[in-house]
């Protein structure tokens, strides 16, 4: 319950901030208030908080010295929300995502997912890495099938779900291909399919498009948005691409480094599908960019 309050209070803070920028008449700083102006959209009822990140810190021992990577991270994420985390290299955004994934159980504070503290990985939380991390000796199909290893889903259903997932990411016909036979963008789609095939509640994306060329990246961002709307799952995207963060996120969490901490959270109240060329989109993007230049 307390977490819900935090969200509400945050909402209030954001609203206050918006009002202040409104009154200062700084046009470029202006953000759209929910349900105002030409971008009309239905006000969603607030979904319950599914992930609470409370006072999280993380440090490494580096040749005897303590290196603080994350400090005082507080963030509540509601079910079905799309959160983008942007920051420069080394701000700890990937570390934070790895903690949420449960790849590293050693941290201070609490990350509570659906009521229990995260200490290890879980099939309910899917992750996609910057590199596709497909196994070169398994075909596209076998790579996705591997995700079922720890489940008791029957064989026939596994195959059917893999087929459906391959179709969903638009790779029908490539089931028997080895990773070296398909392009980087296609490999990353397979990796997304592998993460989604278990129908996780939470999808974690660690700079999934950073290694792709600009055109492929645009296409995959579109597709990711489509998939997210299709599956309706909670998603955390870590990226250093501000446009990507604004394009996909309901909220953009801006992080700064030394030690890694949250600088501010920018809500993106634009209707979907979003159009990058609109003035409002550019305003929000420029606003976030002011944190980096």
């Amino acid at each position: 319950m307390s977490s819900l309050n935090t969200v509400l209070s945050f909402k209030r803070d954001a609203a206050l901030k918006e009002e202040s920028t409104d009154s200062s008449l700084a046009g470029s700083q202006q953000r759209v208030r929910p349900g105002s102006g030409e971008f009309q959209q239905p006000v969603k009822p607030l979904a319950p908080v599914t992930l609470e990140i409370k006072n999280v810190e993380k440090s490494y021992q580096l040749s005897g010295e303590r290196l603080q990577v994350l400090a005082g991270i507080n963030l509540d994420i509601r079910a079905g929300e799309f959160i983008s985390i942007v920051g420069a290299s080394g701000c700890g955004k990937s570390t934070l995502l790895r903690l949420v994934a449960g790849l590293d159980g050693q941290y201070g504070g609490d990350i509570v997912y659906q009521g229990s503290r995260i200490t290890g990985t879980d099939l309910d939380r899917g992750i996609v890495f910057q590199e596709h991390r497909l196994f070169p000796w398994l075909t596209v199909e076998a790579n996705i099938l591997l995700a079922f290893s720890a489940t008791d889903v029957p064989k026939a259903e596994r195959r059917a779900r893999v087929q459906a997932q391959i179709k969903l990411v638009g790779l029908s016909g490539f089931e028997k291909a080895y990773p070296h036979q398909i392009s980087g963008g296609m490999s990353q789609r397979v990796a997304i399919a592998r993460a989604l095939v278990l129908r996780p509640q939470l999808l974690l994306l660690d700079e999934p498009f950073a290694a792709l060329d600009a055109l492929t990246r645009l296409k995959l961002q579109q597709e990711l948005q489509r998939l997210w709307e299709h599956e309706g799952l909670t998603t955390i995207l870590v990226t250093h691409d501000v446009e990507e963060a604004v394009f996909l996120g309901d909220r953009v969490v801006v992080m700064e480094s030394h030690p890694g901490r949250i600088k501010r959270i920018v809500p993106v109240d634009l209707p979907r599908p979003r159009v990058r060329s609109t003035l409002e989109f550019q305003r929000i993007k420029d606003d976030v960019l002011t944190d980096f230049v």
Partner: peptide
């Protein structure tokens, strides 16, 4: 190490 991380994420059984 990436391979082991993926295995960890999907909780692969030791045999697999």
């Amino acid at each position: 190490r990436n391979y082991f991380e993926v295995s960890q994420a999907y909780k692969l059984p030791t045999y697999t």
